[in-house]
Design a binder for these strands. Structure first.
Lengths: 301, 301
DNA sequence: GCAAAACCATCCATAAAATCGATTGAGTTA
DNA sequence: TAACTCAATCGATTTTATGGATGGTTTTGC
């Protein structure tokens, strides 16, 4: 004999309609069933919810207090059922995404915002890693989606290409290498290279294959820090072009004239594993991300 | 087929103990009953709470989300049951008290504070009225207790005396009446009388019987306002002595030498109606109020 | 002022549900 | 490999909820 939700609903209905009989009618039940339930509730709680001394059964003050609490409870029950309904419609409870810090964050944020505006119950967790750290995090945490610059393929990973991003080899306009024509590797080795620490490994041999192998390499933990360091003249390095459009236009940064090339393109991928199929929110977010990327950043050859 | 609390408790227990079987044992039920309830819940919610593909049934992410919400719900159910338990032990849900503004508020506040420290669920409502307004409010609102200077008795009202309070007829030291010996009524009539508006009636004939009937009477809405007005030299009036001990000691206020007497004692009463018997909190508060009054303000002859 | 209607409690028979005990098959431990 | 543990399932049984009828009030409508 326990407190049950159904009886609280009955209590609420009785009070709203004003009588046991009306509540019974509304619920398509016999009035005796209503009386029985209320009596049972009163016995369980050990208090009189209704004062039956008058013609109409009236809520006691205690009953009123219980009703107030009970209504709060009913609201919460409703919330729980809505949550369950969402899940049963395919909305997964949580969605974890890992992205490479080299990719622009704005389209992702716009996609997340649009997802959140749909008022679904899925909780989204976003992580940023670098280089191999993305895939390592994706696999270790069984994440649902990853946005990578590059990844080790396997039969279960399903990748969709995103618009190409160009990385430029740049340096501050005040740096000794600026405006020098026909730079060779040996020239670069005389200066500090700024790069991003791979968050997936501590072993330098697996670092970014775009490194030049000079003696002085500074590892930074994000492209914003890298860009700022380059702007301060600390060294040279690769930076995605979308981050430095302004600085290139006003010549605070200049592209190096490196004989090996100063522009490097890559095709970022949106990846998920078919071992862990995407739920409804995952599919939706996946679509939104593709849409946002393709809308804002037209592909460059 | 509705969501019921009992099943949420079972769900919680399964997860805490780690298996259906252990939960069944703890609940002194057969394991089949537990399976049955969980299956029913899953059908009701339309989602799988457990993943049964492995040896041990494991919570799905959806199940985990439901469990989290469910635990919140169980907490609320528990609160409701505690509330009911308090009521069944005699703690009434609310308690309304009306006091006369002429009485000192500190002992009442101390009593209320001590009551609240007992962590009971009774909500206390306090009102301040003046003179007949106290009883009018008490009767109109079916209040539980009143603290009055005076009241119209009836067979159902049960009054307990509180320590005597003295009202003094005082005036500012700078007022023309100050230090005048042998004042008669006609002298008083030449000056402004300050008094408290009876909150129970708008008809002046039922006003405080201590009024002097002069032509210029200012009605104020509280003793603090009255005291301040007297201090400013606006007129004379009765003020309870506990409010003006300091001012009398440093002679900012002086007692009038009125031939009709300048000190008027009254015995405040703590009253409740036997038509509405006090609940447990009412009795307790009643005791606390008596204790606080008798402790702090020893009776004066 | 009287009859009809509304209100709620109670009783009893029955329909619906939860539970038990036993069994099965899969997985784990020693 | 034998002994356990785990959870699903099934049929029988107990427990609980419901419907319908009745009775004692009080209110409403005429």
């Amino acid at each position: 004999m326990r407190l049950d939700i159904e009886t609280l609903k009955i209590l609420d209905l009785i009070v709203r309609l004003g009588s046991f009989a009306k509540a019974a009618e509304q619920l398509n039940r016999a009035q005796s069933a209503i009386s029985y339930q209320i009596k049972k509730l009163e016995q369980h709680l050990g208090i009189a919810l209704f004062d039956r001394s008058q013609y109409r059964a009236e809520l006691t003050p205690e009953g009123n207090a219980i009703l107030t609490e009970g209504r709060r409870l009913l609201q919460q029950v409703h919330n729980l059922e809505v949550l369950a309904a969402r899940f049963s419609q395919g909305w997964e409870p949580r969605l974890e995404i890992v992205i490479d810090g080299a990719l622009p964050i704005e389209p992702i944020m716009r996609a997340l915002k649009r997802l959140s505006e749909l008022d679904i119950s899925t909780r989204v967790q976003l992580r940023t890693e670098f280089l191999s750290g993305v895939q390592r995090c994706f696999e270790r945490n069984s994440s649902d989606l990853m946005l990578v610059k590059d990844f080790q393929s396997n039969p279960y990973l399903n990748a969709k290409p995103l618009p190409t991003i160009n990385s430029l080899l740049v340096v501050s306009k005040d740096h000794p290498l600026a405006y020098v024509k026909g730079l060779e590797l040996k020239h670069l080795h005389e200066h500090v290279e700024l790069t991003i620490a791979d968050s997936g490994t501590v072993d330098p041999q697996f670092q970014d294959d775009l490194q030049f192998g000079g003696e002085r390499v500074f590892y930074l933990n994000g492209f914003i820090a890298k860009k700022n360091s380059i702007l301060l003249g600390m060294g040279f390095g690769w930076v995605p072009d979308y981050l430095i459009e302004d600085e290139l236009a006003n010549h605070k940064l200049v592209e190096l004239d490196f004989v090996g090339g100063s522009c490097h393109s890559f095709v970022p991928k949106l990846v998920h594993s078919s071992e862990r199929p995407l739920g409804r929110a995952g599919q939706l977010l996946s679509d939104l991300i593709l849409e946002e990327f393709n809308q804002k950043k037209p592909t460059i050859e």
